[in-house]
Write a protein that binds this DNA or RNA. Structure first.
Lengths: 238, 238
DNA sequence: ATGGTAGAGTGATGCAGATCACACACCGGT
DNA sequence: ACCGGTGTGTGATCTGCATCACTCTACCAT
């Protein structure tokens, strides 16, 4: 199947091409079919906004391919990135369930694909499928935990170094090797990293140098190598 | 009915003596009765811990009377207070639904009363009452929004003054008068205020003086008078 | 009264990190 | 080869707040 942005369209990504533990997976056959009827698939270019902070919730997006940046901006223009989502994540769920405006802006960081489920359809669907409703509740509380971790990080760790180390740890835990090292592609700019840990671009730049010098990490092109998680954990201390 | 700590025991506070919009209110008659069967009521002294960060979730507490302080502490002993709950709030819901450890510590700030619903009973109950399950999902997403606001505050507002002004605003919105002024009892110590906005006791002390001098607030004994919300909002700017 | 303790006010000092101001490196377009 | 734009590295300065170190008050218990 031909698709724009050099992507192949994934056939039925709502029922998780990737992870077994996904929100809409392992539902009954009937429930799965109904889900296919109410979803619609679309492909997005880099920079596309799935939704914007403050908008009324139209529905949820189930991300099939590509990375999505979730961020909030204050009136003065200061921005924090709260999360980088990837395939399998469900975006906009909180807003849809509670019928409040989207609390973040979701922007494609690279070309990707997502399934859209309109708010009304989803709510009816959940009414008819209590099993899935329960899963949604669990997903919401997981979201809450993630937010909570963020609060702990922002509220308890004082120094940028600590927050930076924490960020590296979360990255490395997604690509961990046996020996405590990890390797991953760095897709964010220093500016964006700064927005994730609530500091300035310059400070991030200095943090990179400092951590490299201290042998905590290594950088070959866009490939980030984390030497030992242990050493980072010692910096975090919280 | 006699009770310890000078409290009168409230008869059936799980079905909201106070607020109509409560989680377990307006459920069907049958569902309400079942709820009464699985709950148990207890009275707590000041300083009692309903649950502690890291404990396995035993169940949820529906607060009937008294204020409860929710906090997290880092390994180095730094503490942040994430919320002060009062009557009507449901505590521990996220932990119970997602079956993860309680993420906060819940401590009574004054004598009070709460209904306890054990985890298993609640989960069965929700399975049997999808209407209530949906309400729980909504409650969870509200919790999420609150957490999200906290993230915005911690991440976007830099200075303690801003965060302090923000805190005063949330306080005053609960006791607002028509003209933008508000009056409330200050039950927290400077230390505790510091833990709410992520700064030190000394800084809070100076903030109080500063805000009083700038006519933003007034303090008669434990009664805090907020002159104009407008002026505070100008400080917040986010 | 007298002590003890928890909370509150306030000055002096030091430093981490924001801010400003550059220079440079890289890449894609024409 | 040339440019412009975007991202990065790094020095110099400036400042807000944490930290330390007190004193003072209010309140309770004896």
């Amino acid at each position: 199947m031909r698709a724009p942005y050099g992507l192949n369209i994934l056939d039925n990504c709502v029922t998780c091409p990737i992870r077994g533990e996904h929100l809409f997976c392992n539902v009954s056959l009937q429930a799965g079919q109904r889900l296919n009827e109410i979803k619609s698939t679309a492909v997005y270019p880099k920079g596309a906004m799935l939704f914007i902070e403050g908008q009324q919730p139209r529905g949820v997006f189930v991300l099939c391919a590509g990375k999505v940046k979730l961020s909030t901006t204050s009136r003065e223009g200061k921005t924090i990135i709260t999360k980088v989502s990837d395939a399998g994540d469900v975006l906009g769920l909180n807003a849809v369930i509670s019928n409040r405006p989207y609390e973040v802006t979701a922007e494609m960081m690279e070309p990707g694909q997502a399934n859209f489920i309109p708010r009304d359809s989803l709510l009816h669907y959940l009414k008819d499928n209590p099993e899935v409703a329960m899963r949604v509740a669990q997903q919401l509380s997981r979201n809450y935990y993630t937010a909570y971790e963020e609060i702990r990080t922002l509220g308890l760790s004082v120094s940028p170094s600590e927050k930076f180390a924490k960020l590296l740890l979360t990255w490395s835990s997604k690509n961990a090797a046996e020996d405590g090292s990890a390797q991953l592609k760095l897709t964010l700019t220093h500016e964006e990293v700064a927005e994730m840990i609530g500091t300035t671009r310059e400070t991030v730049s200095r943090l990179f140098s400092e951590f490299k010098k201290k042998q905590l990490m290594q950088l070959k092109g866009a490939t980030l190598v984390i030497r030992s998680r242990m050493a980072l954990e010692k910096i975090v201390q919280s």
